[in-house]
Design a protein around this nucleic acid. Structure first.
Ligand code: SF4
Ligand code: SF4
Lengths: 134, 134
DNA sequence: CAATATACGACCGTACTGGTCCAATTTCAG
DNA sequence: CTGAAATTGGACCAGTACGGTCGTATATTG
């Protein structure tokens, strides 16, 4: 029902790993993949998404890799999730793809309570930052 | 990422619909399907699951249908969800299918914080009962 | 130049999802 | 008793999301 994707989990593990290093230290995707036994190619994609959304910085070429773009306290888990996840960021369709996409919307009687649940979950993820999970 | 299945939504809509009727009144699957424009056959499956888990009672034959098995206050949303959803009831694999099913488990550094999040969500769903969404 | 690293897009098999179809069975109304 | 109305249960199907892989381009550094 309500499951984080593996990509998000890998992203969390990876960015946490980077956060444990001294600030500014560059760590390579291969190192993370080897440390946790997660597929290198898949992890790369995830790290690229995190880079695109500005949570980490990337450095190409030899001696390259990734580093945090900001201090861990300024990186809420919610940002990590939304950076990796495409659509499907909400508990129900109408809240992420828009009301028009659900053809039951006008008569739906549960969207209002579910919206509150959604707000609850969002708050949980946005108040939890990276420094709390290292 | 974190999305309720349509079956769960239909189940919530349906059981809420039943709950709005006078206690003990029998309502047919067709009526619910027509009212909300959700596919009849799919809704039937959902209602059957709810019946199997004892949340509603079914009555076969002509003038048959479904009715609540207990007062709305005694039906937490969490039960509705777990009745309909098979596996995948947790935010991460290791919490629903067991630790062995994830081959990163032993080195995973995020399972502990995520377990707390899971507990949070579970509490949200189990403290919300049917009477609160009618 | 060569080695090492990210960047990016295409691709693939499996599983889940939402939905449909069909046959069986129970129950009641006439 | 018969037939309509309803649940029950299974098989089935198309679309898509998911986890993962591959190949190639590009940048950086020694
Ligand atoms: S409108 Fe109701 S059924 Fe449609 S997506 Fe929102 S909550 Fe789900
Ligand atoms: S062990 Fe870590 S990676 Fe594996 S399912 Fe649990 S949280 Fe996700």
């Amino acid at each position: 029902m309500i499951r984080l994707s593996k990509k998000v989990e890998y992203g969390l593990i990876a960015i946490r790993h980077i956060a444990t290093k001294p600030a500014g230290e560059i760590v390579t995707a291969k190192e993370i993949a080897d440390t946790y036994g997660i597929p290198y190619e898949l992890l790369s994609k995830v790290l690229q998404k995190l880079t695109k959304s500005g949570l980490i910085t990337s450095h190409q070429g030899m001696r390259g890799g990734y580093a945090l773009a900001r201090p861990p306290v300024e990186i809420p888990v919610s940002l990590i999730i939304s950076a990796i996840e495409g659509t499907r960021q909400a508990i129900v369709q109408c809240l992420s793809e828009g009301p028009q996409t659900c053809n039951v919307f006008t008569v739906c009687t549960i969207k209002s309570p579910l919206t509150k649940v959604q707000a609850n979950i969002e708050r949980a993820f946005s108040t939890m930052n990276l420094s709390e999970i290292v």
